[in-house]
């Protein structure tokens, strides 16, 4: 197994690890961090597999996609953190109310 695939598998691992965190933790900050870990996993898969051309330079298209993806992730994280602070101010806790699930 070559190095790009190793990194890509790590990316898959991060994705699943983040997913686990998103489900099991209640605190919103942890959930937001978990989403970011999932995102890093996806970005790692994109970037790592771009270097499958042997000695050739990596494919630039996934790199550009990842830069776009990072900006989107930063934006989403900023909005999520702002919303979390407002939820905390409104309810006293940075957790989602558990009862409203049906």
């Amino acid at each position: 197994m070559s190095v790009p695939f190793l990194y890509a598998l790590v990316g898959i691992g991060l994705f699943c690890l983040g997913f686990h965190g998103l489900i099991v933790y209640d605190h919103l900050l942890r959930k937001i961090l978990a989403i970011n870990i999932m995102g890093s996993g996806v970005f790692l898969v994109l970037v790592a597999l771009a270097k499958r051309g042997g000695e050739a330079a990596p494919d630039p298209v996934p790199h550009a996609m990842v830069i776009t993806g990072i900006v989107v992730a930063v934006s989403a994280t900023a909005l999520a953190l702002g919303l979390m602070l407002k939820v905390q101010a409104a309810t006293g806790h940075a957790v989602l109310p558990g009862k409203s699930r049906d």
Binding site: F5, L49, A50, R52, G53, A56, P62
Partner: peptide, 10 residues
């Protein structure tokens, strides 16, 4: 992921 071809330049 592992089923992807070894050599690819996209």
């Amino acid at each position: 992921v592992l089923s992807l071809p070894d050599q690819a330049q996209g």
